[in-house]
Simulated assay, not measured.
Amino acid sequence: MSFHLSNKLLGIINFLTFIFSIPILVAGIWLSKSGVSDCGLTADTNLIRIGALIMIVSLAGFIGSCYGVGWLLWAYLVIILLLILSGLGFTVFTFVVSHKGSGETVAGKGYKEYKLGNYSNWIQTIVNETQNWNKIKTCLVDTKVCTGFKNKYLNYTVEKFHKERLNAIQSGCCKPSNDCGFTYRSPMNRTEEKGVYSNPDCKAWDNDPTVLCFNCKSCKAGVADNMNRTLKKEATVNVVFLILLIIVYCIGCCAFWNNKRDDVYNNQVWKP
Rank of each mutant, 00 (worst) to 15 (best):
V196Q: 03
P209V: 04
K135V: 05
P209T: 06
V145A: 10
W205L: 04
G108H: 09
Y153N: 10
L116V: 07
K112W: 05
K115L: 10
E129L: 15
T138C: 14
V106F: 08
C202K: 02
E164A: 07
T183K: 12
N151M: 01
V141T: 15
R190V: 08
G172C: 06
S120D: 08
Q170S: 13
C139T: 03
K194E: 13
E193S: 01
K100N: 15
T183W: 14
N118V: 07
K160M: 15
K135H: 08
K163R: 14
I169P: 00
Y156G: 07
G117M: 03
T210M: 10
Y114G: 04
G117C: 11
T125E: 15
Y153W: 11
Q170P: 04
I136Q: 05
T125W: 05
K100V: 14
T125I: 10
Q131S: 15
L140S: 05
F149C: 05
G172F: 10
S177M: 07
I126L: 12
L154Y: 09
E159N: 11
L212P: 00
K137F: 12
L116H: 00
T105Y: 07
Y197F: 15
S102C: 09
K109M: 15
S171C: 09
I169G: 03
P200S: 02
C146S: 11
K150T: 13
T210Q: 12
E193Q: 11
Y111K: 06
C173T: 02
F182W: 02
K115M: 10
D201C: 01
L154H: 06
T147W: 14
N167I: 05
K152D: 03
P200C: 03
T191M: 12
K100H: 11
S102G: 12
K175Y: 01
Y156L: 05
G181Y: 04
T130C: 01
V196H: 01
D201V: 00
F182C: 01
Q170Y: 07
D201K: 00
Y114R: 03
C202I: 10
G195T: 05
N189H: 12
N207C: 05
A107S: 09
R165K: 11
N207K: 08
K112H: 01
Y153T: 14
N128Y: 05
L140T: 00
T125Y: 06
P176S: 13
N199V: 06
A204Q: 14
I136N: 03
N189K: 14
N207G: 04
T125S: 10
K109N: 14
D142T: 05
D208P: 00
S186I: 01
I169N: 01
G110C: 15
V158F: 11
T157Q: 07
G181E: 09
V196E: 07
S171Y: 04
